[in-house]
Design a protein around this nucleic acid. Structure first.
Lengths: 269, 269
DNA sequence: ATATAACCTAACGTTACGTAAGGAGCAAGT
DNA sequence: ACTTGCTCCTTACGTAACGTTAGGTTATAT
């Protein structure tokens, strides 16, 4: 007899586990002949071909259920091309997700290598920020002109890294100082450092412009709409600060902005 | 009471399903307080932060088991950087797989759009060939000089497509003609077309050179080794032809090569 | 008081197998 | 004749991260 294998031989030959073959038999994907007397499965040459098709489609990411449907038509016509296109789209989406995750991981690793140890809540919110950059952009475009948004987000990875490190430091200092009075010198220093860096990285004029734009855009919208957006923003991109720290920071910022005429002249150093 | 939510409120606020919250409670990932009287879960602000960390890490591809370990240390030290690196490597591997599958899908779709309908076995073996291009290269490098292998594989997608379409046609014709005598005119024509195209696409001289190299390399090795490789090759990249078609083709090729002096002068047209 | 909404626990379904557990049939060695 | 040992069989639980009933209890609205 040529081309008749026991399940063990078949498994060795195809490098597919016996359990897998049992399973494929069970779900009627590959049904070998059965020896009526012993109940043993007998595989043929044809089963090799079929198994090979299965493995091929599996490597393209198809489920066994889909494979079962595809495999038993003898000619691959226009129906299958649709299925291939869908599979392609699915994989393209998977790839995009992986790409953003990889970018996030690279940047996070870079940050940690420089900074050493970080409060986990803060780090997580930075990571979340990176992971949701695309969504952030769509949100931002609801509030600000697209070219301003582009200008803010289309910067080099290096600059992003600097900004992320700055935010990290900033949040850490907020958490440290949140007990102190808002007119304390260290508080002033912290805010000064933060704004200076932002000015340096995004350009002072540009930042002003964007800010002014946001303010004017916000004035146009009605409150309900703004509350809705604010709510959704909080959900999607939560801050690492507690409610108390948040309101403390708000006070401190107001005080700082009042104390120096922020949008007037050059900052020293 | 500020920041105390029922599970329904919490679910609406975070957009995480109630079932998921139940599950996270069950596996001790997020444990809200429980009203001792009613048994109802009561979520706090802190739970929001934790849930947010969970979602963030999940978006990076971590399992809930891994997340549980990562999440309850307050500072992210050098231990986590290792974990991030591993996750990065994992994603990079995933990405590579997806990329080869996408390339295969693109090429397959292109073929089907041009050719229309195809025998499924043949198409599958072409797809399998595309999916295993990398492995094929490593195998080829065992038999042929690396630069010859490179020369063969490092060609444009267009040329690859041409070759794949040619193989497809070729196999189809083999299956059609396999009954006929090997000296039949159509058989001669088929082999002529096939070799002509290969010569055109890879260059006749280059093909000869590669072939000669293979032959000389093979002569060096001992039979056991060659049989082993041949066996593994058959397993990994099976042909769409049956045993009979295969041996018919071998005869036909021998006849063809004898009938014309293949490596002599120019082919017409 | 009663209807309805919100909550609870328990448990099965999903995907593609891995991993025992327990048993049958057949050969070789003692 | 008995015991190993090998290959095969079926049955069935475990995995990850929930979705989806089902059946029962509590909270809120009328």
């Amino acid at each position: 007899m040529v081309g008749r294998f026991s399940i063990g031989e078949f498994s060795k030959h195809t490098k597919v586990s016996i359990r897998t073959l049992h399973y494929y038999d069970e779900i009627s994907l590959i049904k070998p002949v059965k020896d009526v007397r012993t109940g043993h499965r007998i595989y043929s040459e044809e089963n090799i071909q079929t198994l090979h098709k299965v493995m091929t489609l599996k490597s393209l990411g198809y489920s066994l259920e889909q494979i079962k449907e595809l495999i038993y038509r003898s000619s691959m016509d226009m129906t299958i091309i649709e299925s291939l296109r869908m599979q392609k789209e699915k994989l393209e989406m998977d790839r995009e997700k992986i790409d953003t995750s990889l970018s996030t991981l690279r940047r996070t690793i870079a940050i940690l290598e420089e900074v050493g140890e970080v409060d986990s809540t803060i780090l997580m919110s930075i990571i979340a920020g990176m992971q949701t950059e695309k969504e952030q952009r769509s949100y931002a475009e609801k509030l600000v002109d697209k070219d301003i948004v582009d200008q803010y987000y289309d910067v080099s990875e290096d600059i992003k890294l600097e900004l992320e490190k700055a935010s990290l430091k900033f949040y850490e200092r907020v958490k440290q100082l949140a007990e102190k009075p808002i007119h304390h010198e260290e508080v002033h220093e912290m805010l000064h450092d933060y704004f200076s860096l932002i000015f340096k990285l995004t350009g002072k004029d540009e930042f002003q412009e964007a800010l002014a734009d946001v303010v004017s855009k916000i004035e146009d919208k009605d409150d309900d709409y703004l509350n809705e957006i604010a709510d959704e923003l909080e959900r999607t991109f939560p801050s690492p600060l507690t409610k108390e720290e948040e309101s403390w920071l708000e006070q401190a910022m107001l005080h700082y902005l009042k104390s120096i005429d922020i949008f007037s002249e050059g900052e020293e150093e």
